[in-house]
C-alpha cells in the first residue's frame, strides 16, 4: 500500500456526472435533423423516409428544374445586392462607432443598428409589406432587396465592429504621425487590417439574406420567388426527394459560407 507505483485514479473536479452524456445528447439533437435531410436526399425511394438504396439522381433532377433555377437566381441576386450594400453601410458605421473618443448616445446608436435583430421577423415583414404597398412600390426583387438590406446591416456590423475594436488604435495614430492624412490612413492601414472582418460580415449578411423566408414571403410578388419561398411551396405539397435535395444543397451552401466567415472573423490581426 505504501509503495504504490501506479498513479492514483485522478478525480477531476471539472467533471460533473452525466454532463458529458447531456452534451453528447445536445450535439446529436443539433445535428441529427440536418444530417438526416442530407442522408435522405440520396435515397432512391420516392417515399422519402424509407431507405431502399443510394442514388445521386435527385440532384440532377432538381438542378434541371427551371423553376428551381429561377428561384435560385433570384435568391443570389437579392443576397448579393443586399449583402454588399449592407456591408458598405455597416463598415462606415463601425468606423464611426469605434474610432476617436467615446461618444455620448453611443448606446442608442448601437441599439438602433441592432434593431433589426430585436424586432420579431413577422412584425418587420408586416411593416415592410404595408410600407411598400402604401408608397405604391410593386412587390418584386427590388422590395425584397430593400427589406433584406435592413436586416443584413447588423449581421455585417457586428463582426466588423468586433474587428475594429480588437485593433490597436495607435496603429492609425502611427500612420498620422508618419504624415498620412485621414484617407491615406484608412486605405493604407485600417482597411488592410479590417478586410477579414469586412469579408466575414459580408458572408454572414449574404447567408442570412439567402436563407431568409418570412420577410421574403411577405414582400415578394409574382415572378420574384426566392429559393426558400419556393422550397416552402414544395414542402406544403408534401415530403419528396426533390425537397430533400434542394434543402441539402441550401444547407451545404450555408455551411460552407458560414465556416469561411467564422474562420475569417477568428483570424488574428
Amino acid at each position: 500500500m505504501a509503495n504504490r507505483t501506479a498513479a492514483p485514479k485522478p478525480v477531476s473536479l471539472k467533471r460533473f456526472p452525466g454532463l458529458a452524456t447531456g452534451a453528447a445528447f445536445f450535439f446529436v439533437y443539433l445535428y441529427l435533423p440536418i444530417l438526416f435531410v442530407v442522408f435522405l436526399s440520396f435515397n432512391e425511394n420516392r417515399i422519402a423516409t424509407i431507405w431502399t438504396g443510394f442514388t445521386f439522381d435527385w440532384y440532377p433532377l432538381v438542378l434541371g428544374n427551371a423553376d428551381v433555377l429561377r428561384a435560385a437566381q433570384n435568391s443570389l441576386i437579392v443576397a448579393t445586392f443586399a449583402s454588399v450594400i449592407a456591408t458598405m453601410a455597416a463598415t462606415l458605421a463601425a468606423l464611426a462607432m469605434t474610432q476617436g473618443r467615446a461618444m455620448r448616445r453611443q448606446e442608442v446608436v448601437n441599439g438602433s443598428l441592432a434593431l433589426p435583430l430585436l424586432i420579431p421577423e413577422i412584425v418587420t415583414a408586416v411593416a415592410t409589406l404595408i410600407f411598400f404597398v402604401a408608397i405604391g412600390m410593386p412587390l418584386g426583387l427590388l422590395t425584397i432587396t430593400a427589406a433584406h438590406t435592413v436586416f443584413c446591416i447588423p449581421f455585417a456590423y457586428l463582426p466588423i465592429r468586433a474587428r475594429l475594436e480588437g485593433m490597436d488604435p495607435s496603429l492609425r495614430e502611427a500612420a498620422f504621425d508618419l504624415y498620412a492624412n485621414e484617407r491615406q490612413a484608412f486605405f493604407r492601414v485600417t482597411l488592410p487590417l479590417l478586410w477579414p472582418g469586412i469579408l466575414s460580415g459580408l458572408l454572414l449578411a449574404f447567408i442570412v439574406s439567402l436563407d431568409n423566408f418570412v420577410i421574403t414571403f411577405f414582400v415578394s410578388g409574382p415572378g420574384s420567388t426566392t429559393l426558400p419561398v419556393y422550397i416552402y411551396g414544395m414542402i406544403r405539397t408534401g415530403v419528396t426527394p426533390e425537397v430533400n435535395a434542394v434543402s441539402a444543397l441550401l444547407l451545404l451552401v450555408s455551411l460552407v459560407l458560414v465556416t469561411v466567415a467564422l474562420l475569417l472573423s477568428r483570424r488574428e490581426t
Binding site: 505504501a2 504504490r4 507505483t5 498513479a7 492514483p8 485514479k9 485522478p10 478525480v11 473536479l13
Partner: peptide, 22 residues
C-alpha cells in the same frame, strides 16, 4: 485536493489523503 499527486503519498495526521476530494 485540487490536484492528485502523480507519485508518492500525502498524510494528514497519519491519514492518507489520496483520492479524497477537497
Amino acid at each position: 485536493g485540487f490536484e492528485q499527486p502523480t507519485q508518492g503519498e500525502i498524510r494528514l495526521h497519519g491519514q492518507e489523503l489520496s483520492g479524497l476530494p477537497p
